[in-house]
Simulated scan of single mutants.
Amino acid sequence: MSDTSVVLHDPLGLIETELPLDRVPYEALVTAVLAWKDPDLDPRDYEQIALQLTGHARAVAADVRRLAAALPKSDGRGALAEVVLREADGRLSAPLEGTARCVRNRARLVRALYTRLDRLPEPVQAVT
Rank of each mutant, 00 (worst) to 15 (best):
residue 47 E to F: 06
residue 61 A to C: 08
residue 7 V to G: 12
residue 116 R to E: 15
residue 53 L to A: 00
residue 111 R to C: 00
residue 94 A to W: 06
residue 4 T to P: 09
residue 110 V to P: 01
residue 48 Q to N: 13
residue 111 R to L: 09
residue 115 T to P: 04
residue 23 R to G: 02
residue 28 A to N: 09
residue 72 P to V: 02
residue 87 E to T: 15
residue 100 A to F: 07
residue 47 E to D: 08
residue 24 V to Y: 05
residue 47 E to N: 00
residue 43 P to I: 02
residue 38 D to T: 15
residue 43 P to G: 02
residue 118 D to T: 07
residue 67 L to K: 15
residue 111 R to M: 02
residue 71 L to R: 09
residue 77 R to L: 01
residue 100 A to R: 06
residue 29 L to C: 06
residue 127 V to G: 01
residue 92 L to G: 01
residue 17 T to H: 08
residue 51 L to T: 03
residue 25 P to S: 04
residue 38 D to K: 14
residue 113 L to N: 05
residue 77 R to M: 03
residue 1 M to Q: 11
residue 32 A to W: 00
residue 106 R to Y: 00
residue 106 R to D: 01
residue 83 V to K: 13
residue 26 Y to H: 07
residue 105 N to W: 09
residue 21 L to F: 07
residue 86 R to F: 15
residue 37 K to V: 08
residue 39 P to V: 02
residue 94 A to P: 01
residue 83 V to W: 12
residue 90 G to M: 07
residue 22 D to R: 10
residue 105 N to D: 15
residue 64 V to N: 11
residue 74 S to F: 08
residue 118 D to W: 10
residue 39 P to A: 00
residue 22 D to G: 05
residue 113 L to C: 08
residue 50 A to F: 02
residue 44 R to Y: 11
residue 18 E to K: 11
residue 89 D to M: 09
